[in-house]
């Protein structure tokens, strides 16, 4: 067993706090998302209304925040679960890389979609 990590500081406090703040944001955002998409599908799914929302600057800001925080929260969550397990460093770096790259890719995809309209 190695104890080499004890004492070599690498703060997780900011990540921990952000995870909670984004979590609170996502609770409300998710509720809105559910109501819109699953309980009022006529409004949520219709092309015209979606375009109208995307054209509205406030909605656009909301979507950009939603994409950013949702992705960060989800991927950071996965990473923190993965870190609960002991991993060889090459595996940890690979997994971390996948998370960062896929996170960035999804973010670009989401942002470019939101900005298209």
């Amino acid at each position: 067993m190695s104890f080499k990590h004890y004492g070599s500081r690498k703060s997780g406090s900011v990540g921990w706090l952000l995870q909670r703040i984004t979590g609170i944001f996502l609770i409300f955002a998710m509720v809105g998302h559910y109501i819109l998409m699953h309980y009022t599908p006529e409004t949520g799914h219709s092309y015209e209304q979606s375009i109208a929302r995307f054209s509205n600057v406030y909605w656009k800001m909301f979507y950009l925040t939603f994409i950013t925080l949702g992705l960060w929260h989800g991927l950071n969550g996965i990473w923190s679960i993965l870190r609960d397990f002991k991993m060889k460093s090459w595996l940890a770096i690979t997994l971390y890389g996948i998370i960062v790259i896929s996170g960035f890719a999804f973010w670009v995809l989401g942002v470019s979609t939101a900005l298209k309209f």
């Binding site: 990590h5 004890y6 500081r9 690498k10 921990w16 870190r83 609960d84």
Partner: peptide
């Protein structure tokens, strides 16, 4: 605080 603020420290508590 430095001792517990580490990858194998407090953040493994869920």
């Amino acid at each position: 605080l430095d001792i517990i603020d580490t990858p194998n420290g407090i953040w493994r508590c869920h």
